[in-house]
Write a protein that binds this DNA or RNA. Structure first.
Lengths: 191, 191, 191, 191
DNA sequence: CATGAATGAGCCTTCATTCAT
DNA sequence: AATGAATGAAGGCTCATTCAT
């Protein structure tokens, strides 16, 4: 069951709204439906018709990135080195989250506005969980970490990079360093 | 140079305002100056006189905890096991941050409203930095971590515990697990 | 001169719209053209084409009941007991009005959207007027009541039953009591 | 226990707001808080401070009239002709309701915004009830009417006068005629 | 004829801040 | 110093109506 395809003019507006929302997200402005409408510009009603809540719009903006992440995760499952697979997936996730403010917000939100978001988050959890389990089964991961810790830890790393306050460009690099620290430990091995 | 001491009645109000603010912070209510005034109760103007912005009030609420942390840090400097000292300090920091909403907000804020806050944050950075340097000098800490990473990482851990969504009670436990993971590494040693 | 008959599909929509409107009226929902369209479902434009205003739709919904009342009135004219005839007519009217929200709205409205409504209201006034006149001529009705008082008084009774706030079921009973009080007088005869 | 008296300037605004509201009520405009603010003129917040809801403002406008009615009712209780007392009270009530749109709205509302309103409505019910009971005890009133019928019937009469559509000036006269009809009966005595 | 997307005026409400008392 | 009334920008949302497709 798919949603009926939008009329051409409606689709046009949908695109424009999402595009503006993307810009706002990228420049760190909080998404306000009236504001989006003013900038597109379309009537407020049009934005409300397409996206009943700011969350719905935000998630729509985030979905392509979530899909890409999920796709990457699926590929990672094919890697037969469990540690490399997990590392790769997490690295990618962190990069995305640090680069794209919509992702961190959506990832941290306890509830979703769109079913598609829920679905994708579930997929990501599942893929991450499998990668984690595999690595743990291989004895590569400390046993007290569960699947439910993955998302919080990634959000935490991304948040840490934000707090660090480096310029957006450097932020990705910082985040990668923090991820490495988390994975390999702040304390040097064997000491 | 010190500020003139408050008149006795003014001092009384100051205390009452801070006490109410503390309660609000603890129950997770966002600090609104009007709201605080109503609850004390004093006139809004009185609250504004003492605390020109919500941030100033929030920082005032946070300061005692920051001082306690700083004191703990000073004592940790006396410990001659650098790793134990650092671990103790960070554990304490995380616990405080997870328990007390004022701390996480103040710690993550890029600018401060009160000079005293800036001073305390500097002290904490300095103490943490010394503990870190010492541990690194002892070869116990990975070399790519700098003093500037300490606060972000702690904020990240606290945030991760929040995202995990466990009840406030369990949150401290979660945060401690995450700190351990960070310090010792997600990946098991020697593999 | 009659309106051109609708095309078969248009007629079908007309019916469906009116049916939905009837449901909405019965469940006490205010008639909103957009809402009706969504529920039918047809495009808003279709509803607007058939019914330029909510009033037009409401009147369309009310018309069958008005017709039935009118028919009843015509029959009452044949009754040779003028008082019984009037009482029967008013009773029926009140019952209808209390039962059917479209009627009270249409009856109380100072202007009509549809000519047919005006026509029916005129018929009803005329019939009621004749019944009233006859009863008055028989000396059964106080002389200061005119034809123009009939509709207001019926609306008033229905409204009173609404204000009484009894459940819809009991409302008809209340209305009947009020009508009796009005006809026979609150004050006991001969005192 | 009384509410603290308002500061002089606040009292001034309170008065101005109520005065404007009175005008709006009298010209039949629905009370909208923003609208009131614009017309006074004061900031919206000021109106909201004094009257959290349109209902609260409306009731404030109505209260003096309710008080006057209640006072009249108390005096009527002293009349030793029960029928005359009741008639007088109802006449006065109807006149007030027809003249003042705030009264009909407040009278018909199932719930009140202000405690004072509830109190006054209760007083009026009680007074009316006593007058009714007395008249019934004297055998002057049909026995199937209860205290709970008084308010609905008065609202109904007032509404009927409105539906009649005569000019506001004539409306009071119409209402009085309807009240008489109700009290003495539409049907002539002894027939 | 039917569709339903778009419009935008308009209402509601909150809250940070100022300033007369 | 304290008070708390006043302000009004700002944001949220709904809905009647139009008009391009």
């Amino acid at each position: 069951m798919t949603t009926a395809p939008l009329r051409k003019d409606a689709a046009r507006n949908w695109e424009r709204i999402v595009a503006v929302a993307r810009e706002l997200v990228d420049e760190g402005t909080p998404l306000q439906l009236n504001d989006v409408a003013r900038r597109v510009p379309v009537g407020v009603g049009t934005v409300y018709r397409h996206f009943p809540t700011p969350e719905a719009l935000l998630e729509t903006v985030a979905i392509p990135c979530l899909e890409e992440l999920a796709a990457h995760g699926e590929r990672a499952l094919a890697d037969d080195d469990p540690r490399r697979a997990l590392t790769g997936f997490l690295t990618r996730t962190i990069e995305a989250q640090v680069t794209d403010a919509s992702l961190s917000a959506v990832a941290a939100a306890p509830t979703d506005a769109l079913p598609r978001t829920t679905e994708l988050k579930r997929t990501l959890s599942s893929v991450g969980g499998q990668l984690l389990d595999r690595a743990r089964d291989a004895g590569a991961v400390r046993p007290d970490l569960t699947r439910d810790d993955l998302v919080p830890l990634m959000c935490g790393i991304a948040y840490a990079a934000t707090v660090h306050g480096s310029a957006p460009a450097a932020r990705a690099e910082t985040a990668r360093r923090y991820l490495t620290a988390l994975l390999e430990g702040v304390y040097v091995r064997g000491r």
